[in-house]
Nucleic acid binder design. Structure first.
Lengths: 336, 336
DNA sequence: CATCCGATTGTTAACGCTCACATAATGTGA
DNA sequence: TCACATTATGTGAGCGTTAACAATCGGATG
């Protein structure tokens, strides 16, 4: 910077002013400085800048290391939203969710001078680990509303409960009553909320969920197994006529099982998924599912992060939920 | 740091020594400093550290903003490999690949003091933009070997060509001759290499690729369209008996089209994909495909990045290719 | 004509850390 | 006992930037 100043015949501070687009710099001077910068191929050192301003133009994102659709999509969405507002992101993935590891990661971010931290916390223990941390910069938790505990952090997420109700009510409207739900792992907020939504929708329609809940994980393999088992009691009087899968992968596995067994979907059984993953439109048959608006989530997440002064007192507790959308395709049909 | 020094009754330099695990600090002193750090909740400011050392324990990853399987998986893999060696990552996604944008991003990384940069460059223009950049830290290009140009960067990638040969030879061995290839966008290295592999495998078997190449993109929608068209000429004398899809999404779309039209896979036509995406095992039928070893890629990428002194002269040009693996499932069968 | 104002530019002092070197403390062998 | 390593610690400078304040200049004002 000193070199630039010398070439342009000004002080280093004037160079700094030009760089920061300070208003009171004569256009002529500015041009001279710009020319010098260009000539010397000068680049401002952002470490030095961060040192003095205490800002870095960077936010930190913490995410579990799973490669599952939800967390991954969320990560990408936040990354993109950040780029739109000119922020860079630093990413840390967590394989264990104890408070110590979490603190270590948040420490790193903090000492890097991040201006905010987003924690993608699909699982209960991740959220719990965050609660123990007091941060000088805003922290946003991407999780279900039910994750809010001590509440020093702002929370946002897609309304999984509403999505599940949407899905279940869709099946109910088609006349289904025996609607099995294959749930994801119980330590996932999403799984819990979806199960709740399904249960409540059933309850509202006067249907008992008794015996209709199947505990699973998020995998297609699991969906396949459940599909096989379901096929067996398809003959019975009290046959299942519809399934609400915890996610599209589960649905895919089930579809595969049904296809293999010659069970017609939606002829004999209707299937609804959750996520609208890339390709679910082309399953056999194309899958009715619940689409999560990740782009919206990403932007909302950043809005929340940037709301209020960066170094404010503990942020106001706020919880926001984004409405998902039902995408009706060919895997669901009127019962009978 | 001055505060810590005061509490511990030492100089700031000694604190610095403790933090950097310098050998010549008396254990007793070290403990005292550590206690003071703990007590004060002190965190080292890495901006200041980066300012003077010009290192940050962070690497930068540049990736196109597409949410496609390849780039995304690569990103995750590198992130995980980085974590394993204790490096943090900063991510920048690019939506345009001109040299200016690329330079801006690399600038940011550099001024942040990254110790290395990984550029995920699935497309030709991304790689080209990198070539113009001279970096004081090592740069690794994740791309096909054919991306190597001016060659100031090290290149690594999965051997798409070999994968395509594997896939095509598998079909050839099953007796197929009319093997259509649905290729990805021509500005993608992967698409080009896969097409080449297919063409060469055909050539080696004495089969002309004439009229068998279909230009597509990576989408299921495109696969579906091609599938529909293929169905029409399935009646003819010179019928296509197998398809090598550029990726699994394309394959999924085709499978959907065939399923819809009542075309039996692999009875009437065999299908091979590429990627082995989550779920391809549960397509209808389960998909024969080529698996890319992303975890290996991530680790290799980091090895390459960390090989040699961080601030060395232009790194030796090196190109490494990782062998993919054919996963045979039910979408392929002997012809006839 | 002296004074004050705003626009522009320069000067100096941090920011928090590590590096190079100086100094003090301890041990070692002749 | 003394010179001489060796180990442990302290001192001062400087990394490249911005913030705060000072200084200069050309009017406009009274």
């Amino acid at each position: 910077m000193a070199d630039v100043a010398k070439v342009a015949g000004v002080s280093h501070q004037t160079v700094s002013r030009v760089l920061n687009e300070h208003p009171s710099v004569r256009p002529e001077t500015r041009d001279r400085v710009l020319a010098a910068i260009e000539k010397l191929g000068y680049r401002r050192n952002s470490a030095a800048r961060a040192l003095v301003t205490r800002r870095s133009g960077t936010i930190g994102i913490v995410t579990p290391d799973s490669a599952l659709y939800g967390p991954t999509s969320t990560l990408i969405a936040i990354e993109q939203a950040s780029r739109e507002v000119g922020l860079f992101v630093s990413v840390a993935t967590l394989s264990s969710y104890d408070a110590e590891t979490m603190n270590h990661v948040l420490d790193h971010f903090l000492s890097q001078g991040v201006e905010g931290i987003v924690v993608i916390a699909p699982q209960v223990d991740v959220a719990a680990a965050v609660e123990t941390f007091v941060s000088p910069v805003p922290v946003v938790l991407v999780a279900d509303a039910s994750a809010v505990g001590a509440g020093v952090v702002r929370t946002i997420g897609v309304d999984q409960y509403a999505g599940a109700r949407l899905a279940t009510e869709h099946l109910l409207e088609l006349g289904h009553r025996r609607i099995v739900h294959v749930a994801g792992p119980t330590d996932w907020f999403d799984a819990r909320a979806r199960t709740e939504g399904w249960r409540d929708a059933l309850g509202a329609a006067g249907v008992s969920p008794e015996g209709l809940l199947v505990q699973g994980d998020w995998s297609s393999a699991c969906g396949y197994d459940v599909g096989r088992r379901l096929t067996e009691d398809l003959a019975g009087r009290e046959a299942t006529t519809a399934v609400f899968a915890g996610n599209d992968q589960l649905a895919l596995g089930m579809l595969h099982a049904f296809w293999e067994q010659g069970v017609s979907v939606p002829g004999q059984i209707s299937v609804v998924g959750f996520d609208d993953i890339e390709g679910s439109r082309y399953f056999a048959p194309s899958l009715t599912t619940v689409r999560q608006p990740f782009a919206t989530l990403g932007r909302a997440c950043l809005d929340l992060l940037m709301a209020g002064p960066a170094l404010a007192e503990p942020a106001p507790v706020s919880v926001a939920a984004i409405a998902p959308e039902l995408v009706v395709r060919e895997s669901t049909a009127r019962v009978g």
